[in-house]
Amino acid sequence: MERTPATSPVIEFREVAYALPNGEPLLQGLNLEVQRGETLVLLGRSGSGKTTTLKLINRLLTPGGGEVRVNGTPTAESDVIRLRRSIGYVIQDVGLFPHFTVERNIGLIPRIEGWNAERIHRRVEELLQMVGLEAQLASRYPHQLSGGQRQRVGVARALAADPAILLMDEPFGALDALTRDQLQREFLSLQQRLNKTVVFVTHDLREALRLASRIALMEAGKLVTVLPPEDFLRSSDPLAAAYVRAFGEGPASVVNRGAS
């Protein structure tokens, strides 16, 4: 996709800081822009601040300093419920509602938003197909699904009300290697069709290289560098180089060239 530099970023961090109630800083001086239609991957080890960054976007956390803008509006000024409903959210543990069927899980926000039953039903069918699940799974409960199926339902649920932004926090982290590989591939083809603005958290360099338009490397609450996958591999930044070394041989083969 062509990216026009003139358009304003969909998500913007300006000098954002966040600290725990006990004063321990988790994030400092963060400046970052996410462009429309790109997949920005936040890469870093645990405690580097990537999940904190993600949660600041849909205001599950509020910045202690600076501001986060979504579509040009500071999140602090927007209606938090509307903000969250305009942003899809997928987490590693999925968090499907165990007492709801797949259909009700996916259709919850549309139902709350007052869609009629027929429209919800059609949307659920469409979404199940989109994430590669059979229609008859709609009446199952989450405990009757495999891990991979559950995460697909999680993605379908996040897409239900057709948000323009998708936040994904290590969505494939808990899956076995084969399922993860398959879901990454499907994510790429889905992303080519839907063109959402995606912020994706991972600690896995392979996943980052494969899915990202750009990789934002984080360490100890700070943004180290933001680079496209090819440049990341050649980066002279010591931390980026350390990541590439730790990854071993052949990282170039997985680089995402399709979506950027």
């Binding site: 849909n58 599950l60 419920i81 509307r82 903000l83 969250r84 409903r85 899809g88 959210y89 987490i91 543990d93 999925v94 968090g95 499907l96 509602f97 165990p98 919850l108 926000i109 709350i112 999680g154 649920r157 996040a158 936040l167």
Partner: peptide, 18 residues
Amino acid sequence: VDPAVVEAGRGMGLTGSQ
């Protein structure tokens, strides 16, 4: 209640009473 379920619910924009 599984914290992931609550987080997913809040993240998708359920109000406190929902």
